[in-house]
Simulated scan of single mutants.
Amino acid sequence: MKRKIATLSAILPALLALSVPPAISAENPSVTKSVSAEAERTGFMKVKRNIGCTFRANDPGFLTQGSKTVWATVQITGCTPKPPDKCRLTVHLANPVYDVDNDDTGWVNCKKRTLKAKHKCNDMVSKRQYLTVGTLAMVYRGVHNSHVFKSRQVTLFCA
């Protein structure tokens, strides 16, 4: 029994070390999120140390009260003074089961931008849940990083 306890006490710290995520080094790409209520919707992503962009996913909704079109928007809200070489931003208007509509910028220069996806409602009687899902990919001198982020789920009269 003492031998089993000794073995377990020797193995346990190693198992605990494996369960803790590794520390993010300055050279490794990483995603830093705010700890506010908007943690899922906003954040900052780095490609390398001090090089990256901030992003945001807006809740889907109607532009005007009488509109029959649901819009989903994602944004690059800013980049570091020395921006990444190229960025690719995609937006998906989705419900929990499938993708309703999407759009993609392709690989372009990194700067502030807004990308929109729209869906024309066929039925304004049924309620459905929608969310905005965005993807931001960046490249800086051959180093790649990407991140998928989403908005809150919103229930709208649209089918």
Rank of each mutant, 00 (worst) to 15 (best):
K116S: 13
T77N: 09
S34G: 14
R49N: 14
H147E: 14
G66V: 01
T64L: 14
T69E: 11
H92T: 14
Q153W: 07
D103T: 04
A57Q: 12
V31R: 05
K118W: 05
G52L: 05
C53G: 00
H119A: 12
V100P: 05
K112V: 10
K111C: 00
I76H: 01
G134F: 11
Y130A: 06
D123A: 08
E38Y: 08
A37T: 04
A72C: 07
P60F: 07
I24C: 13
L63R: 05
L18C: 06
P21L: 04
L115P: 02
A6K: 12
T77A: 04
N95A: 03
T135W: 13
D59V: 00
F62Q: 03
L15N: 01
L8F: 07
V91R: 06
E27N: 10
K2P: 01
N28P: 00
T90V: 09
I51E: 06
F157V: 07
G43S: 04
G66R: 04
L131A: 04
N95W: 06
V74Q: 10
S9E: 12
G61V: 03
P22G: 09
N50D: 15
H144C: 00
T7K: 13
T32Y: 13
L16N: 03
S34E: 14
T105E: 09
F62T: 02
F62C: 02
P96E: 04
S30H: 13
E40N: 14
P83M: 07
G134D: 06
C79R: 12
P21A: 04
E40Y: 10
T54G: 08
P84A: 03
A159I: 01
G106Q: 12
V31S: 13
C79V: 08
T105K: 08
G78R: 02
T42P: 01
G142Y: 02
K2I: 06
T7P: 00
K86P: 00
R56H: 13
D99A: 03
V74W: 15
I51C: 11
L18A: 10
V133R: 11
T132V: 09
K68T: 08
Q153M: 07
P84T: 01
L115W: 12
V133T: 08
T132H: 08
R56E: 14
V91Y: 11
Q153L: 08
V108S: 07
P83W: 11
L89S: 06
V133W: 04
T73H: 13
T132N: 03
G106L: 13
A57K: 05
T64V: 06
K68E: 12
L12R: 02
Q129G: 07
R41N: 03
H144I: 00
K112D: 12
A117E: 10
A159L: 08
T155S: 12
K127C: 05
H92M: 15
Y130D: 02
V47P: 01
L12D: 02
P96I: 04
H144P: 00
K82A: 15
H119P: 00
V133I: 15
D101S: 15
N58E: 15
E38G: 09
N95D: 15
T64W: 10
V108W: 05
V31D: 13
V139Y: 06
A26G: 03
K120Y: 12
P22N: 09
V125Q: 15
P96F: 06
L12Q: 07
S126C: 04
P13S: 03
T42E: 14
L115R: 11
E40H: 03
C158E: 08
D99F: 02
A117T: 09
